[in-house]
């Protein structure tokens, strides 16, 4: 059929297990807005997986994605090289994040969210807000994107689970600390793993801080056609791909979301273990690639 090309212009491992991709797609770059995502297939037999637009260059016609290697689909993506093309790339999808002049805005990001919150922070800053960013990782060697985040925030804090940098703890703990210091926030936005989103939402709720979370439900089409990304928000069914991804963290039914996210746990394991790449270590993979080229 018609040849499509979504060329990988740049790709490297930013920190262990998190890979930065710069991909050429002027159509998406032109329309991208903070908080939106794309759906990606690494190859014809792959899954369609959602990834957040972490940056874009409208002039160059490129977009930036950060991929956290988890299971088969992210592994297959990461196995692609600079110069390769993705099989499928659709976007920008989802509603842009709610950005307006709130006053003082808190933005928290963990794992791929450290990459993904940059456009949000930037847009919030441009809208005239005082922007406080907290980034979180297990350890300081897993932190990245400092420079970008620094350039769009008024205050930038770090939380690590092992205390190797910033406070010893998580985003929500840093938030509590800031509140104790007398900091006032008018709006919060979080992006990262589901557990982090839940913990942060639980922390802001007692303070009545309006909280948007970028939900990462399992998706298939990303256009509202299948309903697999449905979550209950305030007792109502919402489709994350068309009603979100930003939804009200205080109203999400977190228990249900956790259960739904793990529906394919067994299949994910089968798929991962039976995958050809698994029998090779990263080093062997590189050797093979070089040998084959």
């Amino acid at each position: 059929m018609m040849a499509r090309e979504y060329k990988i212009i740049e790709k490297y491992e930013e920190v262990p297990n998190v890979h930065k991709f710069v991909i050429r797609d002027p159509r998406i770059a032109k329309k991208a807005e903070a908080g939106q995502f794309v759906l990606v297939m690494a190859n014809e037999k792959g899954e369609r997986i959602p990834l957040t637009l972490s940056n874009w260059d409208k002039k160059e016609g490129t977009i930036t994605l950060y991929v956290l290697e988890l299971g088969v689909s992210t592994m297959e993506l990461v196995a692609l090289d600079q110069g390769d093309s993705l099989y499928s790339l659709a976007g920008p999808l989802g509603n842009p994040a709610k950005v307006e002049k709130f006053g003082s805005v808190l933005i928290g990001g963990g794992c791929f969210g450290i990459g993904g919150i940059y456009p949000i922070a930037k847009a919030m800053k441009e809208a005239g807000n005082h922007v406080t960013v907290i980034m979180e990782a297990r350890s300081n060697y897993l932190l990245y994107n400092h420079q970008n985040l620094d350039s769009v925030s008024d205050e930038l804090y770090i939380a690590t689970a092992d205390g190797s940098s910033g406070i010893n703890g998580h985003v929500q703990e840093k938030y509590e600390e800031l509140v104790k210091e007398g900091k006032k926030f008018d709006r919060a936005y979080f992006m990262g793993c589901t557990f982090m989103l839940m913990q942060c939402s639980k922390a802001t709720k007692p303070h009545g801080l309006p909280t948007g979370v970028a939900l990462n439900a399992i998706m298939l089409d990303g256009t509202g056609m299948c309903g697999c990304c449905r979550v209950s928000v305030d007792g109502e069914t919402k489709f994350v791909c068309v009603d979100g991804p930003e939804l009200d963290g205080h109203k999400v039914d977190w228990d249900e979301l956790f259960i739904r996210k793990h529906i394919y746990r067994e299949e994910e394991a089968v798929s991962y273990q039976s995958h050809a790449c698994r029998s090779l270590t990263g080093y062997e993979r590189d050797q093979k690639k070089e040998g084959g080229a």
Partner: peptide, 17 residues
């Protein structure tokens, strides 16, 4: 396609254009 129709896949109208 042989007759000359162009097909743009991965193109979500309402979002991309």
């Amino acid at each position: 396609i042989k007759q000359g129709v162009k097909l743009e896949l991965d193109s979500v109208i309402g979002r991309m254009r």
